[in-house]
Each structure stands twice: as C-alpha cells, then as structure tokens.
C-alpha cells in the first residue's frame, strides 16, 4: 500500500498543494484570550494577522493533542499500513511529542515513522514536498523515512523579521537573544540551527535584507526546492521572488503564507525563505 504523509500546519502546506501532493495536515492551536482556534481551520491567516495588528492582542499557541494525531492515524490506517509524519522542530514545539505518543497507541495496526524536521515553516514544508514526490515515485516507508532524515540537514531557512518584539514576547528567541535591545531600528535576519532560532545578522532596511538573503542563497550552487513566504506583505515577498529569479526559476518557487502559529512569533512584515539542497 502507498505511504501516507502527515504534517502539521506549521509546514505551511495549504490549499491546493495539500491535495496535489496528498498529505494530511494536523493543525496546531492559536489562542486569543479565552478562545482557542485550530490553526488555519477555525482562523484564517488574513483574520489572524488583522487581529494581531489591530487588536494588539497577545495570542498564544499550543501543540496538537496526541488525540488529534491519533484520529488522523486511525483514519489513514483504513487506507494504508505505512504512515510518515514530518513535524516542526521538537526544540520549538511539543508537536513531535504528541505525534510520538499517538503512535504508541496505534503501533500494532499500522507502521508509523515520525521525523523531527528540526525546522519550521517551508523549511519543514519542503521536506514534506520532497517526501511526497518520493512516495509518488514508489518509495516505501523505510526508504522515504531514511531519505527524509538525511534531507533534514540539507533544508535551510532564512527569516527576515521586521521586529523581534513578537519572538521575544513568545519566549521562543533562543540564541537570537543577542539581537535584542538595539537602540537603532534594525531588521534581524535569523536562521534555524540544530532546531533552534539562531541569529545571522542585522540590516537597516528591507532592501538591504533582500540583498543579504540573495547573496546567502546564491552561495548554494545546487538548490532542489525553494520557497518564499510572507506574513502580511505580499509585495515584499514578490520583490524577494523577483530577486531570486536570477538564480532559480521563478515559476518553480513555492509561495505560501506564514501560519498563524508561527506568525504569533514572527509578527507582521516578516518573510521566510527556505530551500532544500540537492543530494551531493
């Protein structure tokens, strides 16, 4: 039977892409005050960012319950006996734990492998897309799991934030601590290292950020998949895509919007550029 792939909403695989590559997406939760919303299911990205900016509210986020995964596993186990789960970095969220716990409850009926992407957003999503392609070409669970685990270190993410306010407020700042407290207005560039947020450098303007991201991506000669996402500024993301189009075919660049859960920490006017290196 064909391997089924499961991921979480943080992978930013949404809409048509979900059915096109045939993955099931488990939502995390975002909470405004007393109300809990299933990420992207009960609250759209548009509505989320509108409330984040206009209400000045402090949303918080929660991982899916083991039961959320269990229900998905049960449903899929009627169609397959092999499931691959690719989730957000276990250093950033407890989603991985929930996925594992749910597996323990269902082990006998279905083989389930859970891969910690050690990344987030399309850094995680590109691993999902890559795995889905392999499955389409006939890969079985062991093969696609081994392939995905190896690909984790080839998946890169560069984040441009307009401010670190949201990341600091959510307590997810990790090693990027040193970027805080600047008296000048600066835009931080961050990455993911060993599953955690880590600082890259700081720029003073969006266009300087564009240049910096471009030169970083251009340093990789062999890019297999590339994605550009934004939280609120489609215009800025379009500029990024234009800029990168000289090193990667524009029509092949995946586009998405940063999920409400990640947006809680990234804030408005953020961008994420992810790419997966081809195997050497």
């Amino acid at each position: 039977m064909v391997v089924k792939i499961v991921t979480d909403t943080l992978s930013d695989i949404t809409g048509d892409l979900t059915s096109e590559i045939g993955v099931t997406v488990v939502p995390l939760y975002v909470r405004f005050g007393e109300t809990l919303y299933r990420d992207r299911v009960e609250i759209s990205t548009d509505e989320f960012y509108r409330r984040l900016i206009n209400e000045g509210a402090f949303p918080s986020t929660t991982q899916p319950t083991p039961n959320d995964f269990l229900e998905v596993y049960k449903k899929l186990s009627k169609e397959t006996d092999e499931i691959l789960v690719i989730v957000v970095s276990s250093k950033l969220s407890g989603t991985y734990q929930s996925a594992i716990q749910a597996r323990e409850l269902l082990k006998r009926e279905c083989r389930i492998e859970v891969v910690d992407s050690l990344s987030v957003a399309m850094g995680e999503g590109l691993l999902v897309i890559d795995a889905a392609r392999a499955v389409k070409e006939g890969a079985k669970l062991d093969e696609v799991t081994a392939m995905t685990r190896k690909a984790v270190s080839r998946s890169h993410l560069i984040a441009y934030f307009d401010t670190l306010k949201y990341l600091a407020r959510g307590g997810r700042i990790g090693k990027a601590q040193g970027l805080l407290g600047s008296m000048l207005s600066v835009k931080p560039l961050l990455t993911i290292r060993e599953g955690e947020m880590a600082p890259l450098t700081r720029v003073r303007s969006f266009s300087a950020g564009l240049d910096h991201v471009y030169s970083m991506v251009a340093a990789y000669p062999n890019i297999k998949l590339l994605a550009v996402e934004h939280s609120t500024s489609l215009e800025n993301a379009n500029k990024m895509v234009e800029k990168l189009s000289s090193i990667f075919p524009k029509e092949k660049i995946y586009r998405s919007v940063i999920s409400p859960v990640v947006g809680t920490y990234a804030g408005p006017d953020a961008m994420a550029i992810s790419f997966l290196e081809a195997e050497k």
Partner: peptide, 11 residues
C-alpha cells in the same frame, strides 16, 4: 562603526 558592527555575521 555602526554599519560595521551591524554587519557582524554571527556564523
């Protein structure tokens, strides 16, 4: 001095 310090690359 400011632009030099800002350009500091953490990696």
């Amino acid at each position: 001095g400011v632009v030099a310090l800002l350009a500091f690359d953490y990696e």
